Simulated scan of single mutants.
Amino acid sequence: MAPEENTITATRTSLRIVEALKRLDGAGTTAVANHLDIAKSTVHNHLRTLEDEGYITKEGSAYRVGLRFLELGEYKRHRMDIYETARPEVASLAEETGEMANVAVEEHGEGVYLARAEGTEAVTVDTYGGKRVNLHCTALGKAILAELPEERVDAIVDEHGLPARTENTITDRAALKSELADIRERGHACDHEERLPGLRCVAAPVTSVDGDPVAALSVSGPTSRIKGDRFHEEIPELLQSAVNVVEINLTYS
């Protein structure tokens, strides 16, 4: 995101340093300075301040993101109606399919996983509560994009691009818009190994009474199991049923 007038440079630097610690899975002052191309003395001062305030920890010579961020994230998550409302349906989807079920929302043009549940046959993937992903390469993200106004979709693509995550990722704007039109027509989105090789996903959007996208629910699993009628009919029907329950509860609870 481009810097805006009146933003605070020091705050931006601290946040970039926190992101670098996450990306580097912990690092010392020199490694962070080299990664961000910032003066070592500046990085040192920011790291010490973040440590003093309890937002990062130091283990030996390496600084790491602290658990205070977990406290903030959990506070935010539990304040969201969609999280509390969708969690039981996500658990039911995982139980019924035996696969991984998820709920995600859009924030700042990215998809954010709120919760997941693992069925008895679920494969291990890299998702977790709070993980951020591009919208264009996931079924969850495409389900949400399909319900957004075209100008909002264009703004998201302008800001985040359409990076290729696998050889199947949609990287052309016109192709993405065609895909979103198909999603709107059939009511669910599919991920054909577009973010992770060997993984397929089906997702359906959760919308408000005004038709605005609130979130999306999904079921994902290996291509060896998510195929044929299960991929095109069985899982989409289960998702639509779950979405219906979530939307009713959001509206009337």
Rank of each mutant, 00 (worst) to 15 (best):
A101F: 04
I17N: 03
R230A: 15
D191C: 08
P222I: 07
A104I: 01
A189Q: 01
Y252K: 03
G26I: 02
S208R: 09
I156C: 13
H108K: 14
V157I: 15
D158H: 00
T13A: 01
L36S: 03
T166E: 07
I8N: 14
T169M: 07
N244S: 15
A174N: 09
G26D: 06
A175Y: 01
A20T: 00
E193H: 04
G228S: 14
A91F: 11
C137M: 02
T97K: 06
T120M: 06
D182T: 06
Y83K: 11
V105C: 08
L199E: 06
I170Y: 04
E4L: 07
H232N: 09
G66T: 06
P88L: 13
Y63L: 04
I82R: 05
V219K: 11
H44C: 06
A31W: 00
N168L: 03
A33G: 05
N168M: 05
A155V: 11
R12H: 00
E150P: 02
R77Y: 12
D126H: 03
D172Q: 13
A216H: 03
D210F: 12
V157P: 01
V214W: 04
V206S: 02
N45P: 02
E167D: 15
M1Q: 10
D52F: 05
E159N: 08
L180R: 01
N45E: 12
H78A: 13
A122H: 08
E19W: 05
L176C: 07
G111D: 01
V206G: 02
I38F: 08
M100Y: 13
H35R: 05
A10Y: 06
F231K: 01
A94I: 09
P88E: 12
G221H: 04
D126F: 07
V133M: 12
V32S: 00
C190S: 11
I56V: 11
D182A: 14
V202E: 14
D210V: 03
R48K: 04
R12Q: 04
K76S: 15
R116E: 13
V123A: 13
Q240W: 01
G54W: 09
I235R: 01
R200C: 14
E95H: 14
L36N: 03
L180T: 00
Y63N: 02
H136P: 00
H136T: 00
I17G: 04
Y252D: 10
D52C: 00
T97N: 11
T138E: 07
T138S: 14
L135A: 06
S253L: 05
E84Q: 15
Y83V: 10
C201Y: 03
P149Y: 11
I248A: 15
